[in-house]
Design a binder for these strands. Structure first.
Lengths: 187, 187
DNA sequence: GTCTATATCAAGATAGAC
DNA sequence: GTCTATCTTGATATAGAC
């Protein structure tokens, strides 16, 4: 059943956002879906297989967000913020970004998953660089650096937001916009 | 032996930076120290007790860094950067900030530790706010927001830095300084 | 204060029935 | 494709000897 397979991926992905790859078990998934552990093992023989499928699922979502935003007819300077919020919207208040979550578990992941997490981490920054380069605004000389700051701060903010609430994520986005606007030089 | 006790805390703290609270075991610590699991249990009956001791240890270091920087005779505008780098210096390239690490594990921590992690997360931002307020520079109207951005971006950068290398942490700090300098209004 | 030994439990995984 | 049953391993934790 292909449906069951993608259902498992979606639920496992949510578990990663909530508690991390190392901290969810096949039994957690089985109980939630209403089947047995063995049935999860049928679809994904090893947890590593499921982990890789989840990474592929995240990559698909990332690619999709980028392509969608790139082709949308909105102000070109707004695209970067649209991209960021389209990614952040998928994360509930008691969750964090699944890529951050797997970054924390990194040293305990199978090497195949380490490679995937590395690729995802890189790709995410690449997409932000592209959107910044396509924009008509020149904020700093170092577009790669600005991209790294944007991604780092959003990810960090989501982690603090879960613990402290206080609209911390919203606050950080507002600060970034303020600082960037104060530095914009039209090309 | 009080020495053994603090030795356990230091090694456990390093383990948290490397792999997280949930992912290190008493056996890991025992092997590293050269004693048995049971001996760790003697000093910290439950892992939760050790976890709380580690949180207290982190708080001590945080307080110490703040007080030291606050009383150092350096340019008052530099103190915030000194504070951040004094904290980041303690983290090796294959580690992340221990507070970030426990934030990721948050939903699986015993409630007593959740309270400690919450307190640490809050305190860290408070110290940054204080240093910004004492500074002679007014960057934005929203000092709390700027503090949240600084802490979030540094924590996020350390996580990406471990996976991607590329001096990502250094790059992010440089970007923050650039953006902030472009927005400074002398009081 | 540190040890051996052991209890208990949960996790990942596999074999084989239906 | 999903099940029951079972194996193995590793983790937290405890009892009691030295």
């Amino acid at each position: 059943m292909e449906n069951r397979k993608s259902q498992i991926i979606e639920i496992a992905l949510r578990n990663i956002r909530e508690k991390g790859y190392l901290s969810f078990s096949y039994d957690d998934l089985a109980k939630e879906i209403g089947v047995t552990k063995a049935s999860i093992h049928y679809h994904f023989e090893k947890k590593e297989d499921l982990g890789l499928a989840i990474c592929a699922r995240i990559k698909k979502g990332l690619d999709h967000s980028y392509i969608e935003i790139a082709n949308t007819k909105i102000n070109i300077e707004d695209k970067i913020w649209e991209f960021i919020s389209s990614r952040a919207e998928q994360i509930s208040p008691n969750e964090i970004c699944p890529i951050s979550s797997m970054q924390t578990d990194y040293n305990f992941l199978p090497v195949t998953m380490q490679a995937s997490v590395q690729q995802l981490s890189h790709l995410e920054i690449e997409y932000v660089i592209k959107l910044l380069e396509e924009s008509s605004l020149q904020v700093t000389q170092d577009t790669k650096g600005l991209a790294a700051l944007l991604i780092s701060s959003v990810k960090g903010a989501l982690q603090y937001n879960r613990i402290l609430g206080e609209n911390l994520y919203i606050t950080v986005i507002a600060q970034l916009k303020l600082l960037i606007n104060g530095n914009i030089k039209k090309r």
